[in-house]
Design a protein around this nucleic acid. Structure first.
Lengths: 329, 329
DNA sequence: GGATATAATGTAAGGGCTTACACCTCTCTT
DNA sequence: AAGAGAGGTGTAAGCCCTTACATTATATCC
């Protein structure tokens, strides 16, 4: 069942049918209705391939992230999907996992599917070795990176000033004399770098000489963190604040502290990152830095829209994170 | 840059280039290598549309769910994506939200994109009013429903015996004299029905006359649940166990209990559903029913594979859930 | 009423691939 | 040495649309 069949049944030419389908001008009301009725009756759906061939676009955007089973990415993908949907775009989801080498393969795949754009979510994409693949992809379609920064032509990035957020966190902690800060970061996340930079800068400005013993690098696993923090406590390492690069890690630390009878926030303040739903699961609830996932995603899609409309959106968009004060600090 | 360009550069015909691209027989090793080198050099990617036009398939599967920002769906989508990826399929993600009427629109959309199959995640899809749309879609491509059951031709479903799980939960609780069970369910979830059936059956078999006051229907929101449970406690309603249709709800109840000085599990046992990462966030950690998301998804994709290979997989696959005992019961 | 502007419709040329079929070039057989 | 068979390659039709351009119908004006 193709456009010729419809044309024949309606007694018009395929051009007219095509016009009706695409809501173009220059079709009489009468003809339009007739064609529409027949399409409805037959249950005809235009073939995307033929359409794509003609138009060169299939109204799809590739969204890459490491995994949607992570809260942060899940929320990002959800927002992106819904925003793109309103623009009439479908989302092709690509979860690359942590394997850097896979990324280029996925991008190639998306390119071959002729997506209209690619949205990369997560700092993993700013990691060096994949830059050339991104650059190559960017020559063909717009590439937008969320939560990371990149300096490649035809590439746009939207991120949040995490460095500043952590910097201020340190200052705020120091201001109330919490100067022994345990810093916990996720070994698998490249965005930890930015945060760490903010941390050391904060320490510098506050004359805190941060001991290497107070930097913990762990995989993203609540139990693993708990273990490590317990070890630390039991080894007699003292600290009165914890800053973690992700809520899950902060939560692990919180549990470790509580299981050793330390009070949060009285004895130790605990601060997480991402302002995820996990924050509300503990008691006290977890204070966390809201890095504005939804805003970032909306901005990203807005940029996409501007590009589609042929305008020139800014290459970098920096958002300001917001500290969400709850019970743990 | 198309197949003709490659053909010209390689000094062969387009048919040969096509053969090389598709790994067909009857190409001399020498020619193959030459063409491959040129493709590599140029960075040529075949146009999917043209290809799809010829083949009728684009190696994509539509995945529908309400939202990936929900832990359960996120995990499901993650697993489906990765499984499909290994089969060489891309995932088009469609998040319908809770709006039932939207579902048919999305399915139509997917159909028009010529997906090779559709995977529906969540019991919302077994809701009556959309049955006809599913039936219509199923005439064109295989439809697989995860975590729900459906009786429509060309439709396959994979779900978990939630009714049985809740039934056994009630029996287990009754066996240790926890007979005053607060049942909390999500108003937005259709799968609550199945669970409730298990619950009442369990009550019946254990001679528990369950008071309507002990059934709470709430939206999916930890704070809202907490409020409701607090009201209940403050109103003097007594119970020594809580069964919730989702972990998040159980967690809300747990917090309410603890904030009123009730001990978990000593005074009140709390049991959640889905065995999500939330279970490990509270203390005590939340006991929960693992409804085997990953297994369901893997099965679903396996069914898809069988269908592709022209075999006849079973129409219904029922998995057995597993109670994950932690600190709250 | 006839010229002219405008709206409605049709024709045909792509767009880039797959593949059936035709063709050519060997090698091997007898 | 001629014929058969196989392997390698090319030609061209077909997949189903979109759209520039050509054509025809209708409306408008003096």
């Amino acid at each position: 069942m193709n456009i010729y069949d419809i044309a024949k049944l309606a007694g018009v030419s395929i051009a007219t049918v095509s016009r009706v389908i695409n809501g173009k001008e220059n079709v009489s009301e009468k003809t339009r209705r007739k064609v529409e009725r027949i399409i409805e009756e037959i249950g005809y759906t235009p073939n995307v391939f033929a359409r794509g061939l003609g138009l060169g676009s299939i109204q799809m955007v590739g969204v890459l992230c490491t995994t949607v089973s992570d809260l942060f990415y899940a929320r990002a993908v959800a927002t992106i999907e819904s925003e793109l949907r309103t623009l009439g775009y479908d989302v092709i989801l690509c979860c690359t996992g942590n394997d850097v080498s896979e990324k280029s393969r996925y991008m190639q795949l998306l390119l071959s599917k002729r997506v209209d754009a690619m949205i990369l979510v997560g700092s993993i994409f700013q990691e060096r070795t994949s830059n050339e693949h991104i650059a190559q992809a960017a020559t063909q379609v717009p590439v937008i990176l969320i939560n990371g920064s990149l300096d490649i032509p035809n590439t746009y990035c939207v991120f949040c000033d995490e460095e500043g957020a952590v910097y201020h966190l340190v200052r705020d902690l120091a201001a109330v004399n919490r100067r022994d800060i345990l810093y916990i970061e996720n070994t698998e996340s490249y965005s930890s770098l930015t945060k760490w930079r903010g941390f050391t800068r904060g320490c510098g400005d506050c004359n805190i000489s941060h001991s290497p013993a107070l930097k913990l690098q762990v995989p993203k696993d609540g139990d693993a963190v708990k273990e490590k923090v317990l070890e630390l406590i039991d080894a007699g390492v003292k600290f009165n604040a914890v800053v973690a690069s992700e809520d899950l890690l902060a939560l692990g630390a919180l549990k470790a502290l509580q299981s050793r009878g330390l009070r949060v926030p009285d004895d130790v303040a605990v601060i997480g990152f991402n302002d995820s739903i996990l924050c509300k699961c503990s008691s006290p609830e977890l204070s966390s830095v809201d890095n504005k996932v939804d805003d970032m995603c909306r901005r990203a899609v807005a940029i996409l829209l501007e590009l589609i409309q042929g305008r020139k959106p800014p290459t970098r968009t920096v958002l300001t994170p917001e500290f969400k004060r709850r019970g743990s600090f």
